[in-house]
Amino acid sequence: MKEMNIAYVGFGKSTNRYHIPYVKTRDHMKIKRVVNRSLGKRPKEQAALEATGTVFSTALSDIITDDSIDLVVVVTPAFAHYDTVKQLLMGGKNVLCDKPLVETAQEAKTLIDLANEKGLFFMPFQNRRFDSDFLTVKKVIEAGYLGDLIDITVNMDHFRANDATSGQPFDGAWYGHGVHLVDQMISLFGKPSSVSYDIRSVRQEDAVDDYFNVNLMYPKLRATVAATEVAALPHPKWIVYGTRGTFVKATVDQQENDLKVGIMPGTEGFGCDTPDDFGTVTYYNGNGDRIEKRIPSVTGDYARVYDAVYETIMNGREKLVTDEQILAVIETLEHGFH
């Protein structure tokens, strides 16, 4: 299998938590370069990569002029995404960009058009398509337990009562958390026919939004995405109603929890639910019998985004996140404030 050489722009928490540990589980992916505005802030992590041949520097041009780089992953603060990605695409590089990708649909369209014009790969890092809970919901829907879907709700709740911050809408929960949940719904059902928004700042009046409850409407389905930062008792992560059954999963994907305590991808049991965390489907079978069944969780794996990128760049496969989906997600986010 041909090796894919990767460069990172940004070397903060996200790069070291959600990207590099996963890439290290793939033998055919090599981290060739890291560019960051300042070096030495993470000396242990930097030294570990340098020991395997990764070159660190502070200039974006070092990546652009390196013809061996197959993919550049942008993990800068979100406000810098647009300009950084545009420079890289202009320099002829394939780009995977963390999310939220950009603030406006026009910015997204400009980058998509530029990539297509130059024949380059460009996609957001929608890793939560490979959350365990989302993969399990997909499995239940595809198995047919629920019949025709009527109503689906996904929540992303935390309890951070004293963490209100000021800033722009791009810095708030709707863009920060909503980007994951909206993308999950659009990946399942496509672009909604209409959207109704309830986006608020509940912890502090002049702070960025920290609560949302947004309904994506489809011809026969309402898909609700919701989040709050003041949930002392969180909502169930998923509630899915259909004409024949209901699926409820209370708990979230465990990958992030494991990463936070230093358990790495590739470790036995990484990201796995315990049986207590399995979701429950309640449905009526063809005889009219009411059945309740625990559904073992599908194991999540954010490295599968990189697998998909590899297949597109190296083998010409279709992109995991299509251009149409990219635009639909950003449009949905942007319209929440217009």
Rank of each mutant, 00 (worst) to 15 (best):
M1S: 13
K2R: 12
K13T: 15
T15H: 15
R17K: 13
H19W: 05
V23T: 13
K24N: 09
K24V: 03
D27C: 07
D27Q: 15
H28Q: 13
V35N: 08
N36V: 14
N36Y: 13
S38N: 08
S38C: 01
L39F: 02
G40C: 02
G40K: 02
R42V: 08
K44P: 00
Q46I: 01
A48M: 03
L49T: 00
E50Y: 00
A51F: 01
T52D: 08
T52H: 01
T54S: 02
T54A: 03
V55A: 02
F56N: 02
F56K: 06
S57R: 10
D67E: 15
D70R: 07
V75W: 13
V75Q: 15
A80R: 06
A80T: 12
A80Y: 10
T84K: 02
V85Y: 02
Q87P: 05
G91H: 12
K93F: 10
L96D: 06
K99H: 03
P100T: 15
V102W: 04
Q106R: 06
A108Q: 00
A108E: 00
K109W: 00
T110E: 10
L111P: 00
I112L: 04
E117F: 02
G119S: 09
L120H: 06
F121H: 10
P124G: 02
F125S: 00
N127Q: 11
L135D: 10
K138L: 14
K139C: 10
L146D: 07
D148R: 09
D151M: 03
T153R: 15
V154R: 09
V154N: 05
N155L: 11
D157P: 08
N162A: 05
S166D: 13
Q168H: 06
P169Q: 06
Y175A: 03
H180P: 03
M185L: 06
I186P: 06
S193T: 11
S194C: 05
V195K: 04
S196V: 08
S196R: 11
D198S: 14
I199V: 15
I199G: 06
I199N: 03
R203M: 15
V208I: 15
D209W: 14
N213A: 13
L216Q: 11
P219A: 12
A223F: 15
A227S: 15
T228P: 05
E229S: 10
V230R: 10
V230T: 15
V240P: 02
G242L: 10
G242R: 08
T246E: 12
V248I: 13
K249N: 06
V252C: 07
D253C: 09
Q255D: 04
Q255P: 05
L259T: 03
L259H: 01
K260R: 14
K260Y: 07
G262T: 12
M264D: 10
P265I: 15
G266I: 14
T267Y: 08
E268R: 09
E268Q: 12
E268D: 13
G269H: 11
F270V: 03
F270Y: 11
P275A: 05
D277C: 04
G279F: 07
Y284I: 11
Y284D: 03
G286P: 00
G288A: 01
R290Q: 05
P296A: 11
P296T: 11
S297K: 11
D301N: 14
Y302Q: 04
Y302P: 01
R304K: 12
Y306H: 06
Y306A: 06
A308L: 02
M314S: 09
G316W: 04
R317P: 00
E318G: 04
T322I: 10
E331L: 04
H338N: 14
